[in-house]
C-alpha cells in the first residue's frame, strides 16, 4: 500500500481493482488544516479520467504491472495475436486498444506488452518502423526542403504527411510513438 504522501505524477495505482495512473498531482494544505493530495487520475482500462483528493491518513493500493517480451504472430479479424518469446503463450490485443499503432505492426515484430493481473493493457512497439510509400503525389525533382509536407499513404492504408521530395515506392522510417515521418531510408 502507498501512503497518500507517496503519491506523485506518473505513479501507477489500483482503484477498485483497476490499474490507474496519476496524470496530475498537487499537494495542498489549507492554513492549519490537513494535507490534501489532489490528483487527476486516468483509468488504464477504460481511459476515463477523474479527480480524486486523498487525505494523509488514507492508503492507496499499489498496482502490480509487469512487462513481457512478445512477437507478433497473426491478425485474427480485429484482434492482434502475439506470442510470448519464452512460453509461446498467446496475448490478444484489439485494434481499438492499439489505435493507429496497429498500422505499424509487421510480421515477427518484437514488442513489449504490459500486463495487469494477466490482462494485457498496452503494448510498446520498436520506436521506429520502416514502411514503403504506396501512394503520394509525385515529388518535385531537386526539391529537398523538409519543412514543406504533403499527404501520403503507406502500404497498409495509413495516411501521414511526408516532405514533398518523397515518391511512391520510397522506403521511409516512421516514429511509432508519434506516427510521424522521421526520414527516408531508400529511394523507390
Amino acid at each position: 500500500m502507498y501512503s497518500a504522501s507517496d503519491l506523485k505524477k506518473g505513479l501507477k495505482i489500483e482503484i477498485d481493482g483497476d490499474p490507474c495512473v496519476i496524470t496530475q498531482f498537487e499537494f495542498s494544505k489549507p492554513g492549519k488544516g490537513q494535507a490534501l493530495y489532489r490528483c487527476k487520475i486516468k483509468n488504464l482500462i477504460s481511459g476515463n479520467t477523474f479527480d480524486k483528493t486523498y487525505r494523509s491518513v488514507e492508503k492507496v493500493d499499489k498496482c502490480a504491472l509487469i512487462s513481457r517480451d512478445y512477437t507478433f504472430s497473426y491478425l485474427d479479424g480485429d484482434t492482434y495475436v502475439f506470442s510470448d518469446n519464452e512460453t509461446y503463450e498467446e496475448a490478444l490485443l484489439s485494434s481499438e486498444l492499439l489505435g493507429d499503432r496497429r498500422y505499424f505492426i509487421v510480421d515477427d515484430m518484437s514488442v513489449e506488452i504490459l500486463f495487469h493481473n494477466d490482462r494485457a493493457l498496452d503494448v510498446t512497439l520498436p520506436n521506429f518502423i520502416e514502411l514503403t510509400i504506396a501512394e503520394t503525389e509525385p515529388g518535385a525533382r531537386g526539391d529537398t526542403a523538409t519543412n514543406v509536407m504533403k499527404p501520403a499513404k503507406i502500404e497498409n492504408v495509413y495516411e501521414l504527411n511526408v516532405p514533398i521530395f518523397i515518391n511512391e515506392g520510397d522506403l521511409i522510417r516512421i516514429d511509432t510513438r508519434t506516427g510521424e515521418y522521421a526520414d527516408r531510408v531508400a529511394k523507390g
Binding site: S28, P30, G31, G33, Q34, L36, R38, T53, R55
Partner: peptide, 14 residues
C-alpha cells in the same frame, strides 16, 4: 466538519 472545511477552503475558497 473538519474534512469538509479543509476541502471547501482548497476547492472553493482558494
Amino acid at each position: 466538519d473538519a474534512d469538509r472545511f479543509d476541502e471547501v477552503l482548497c476547492e472553493q475558497v482558494e
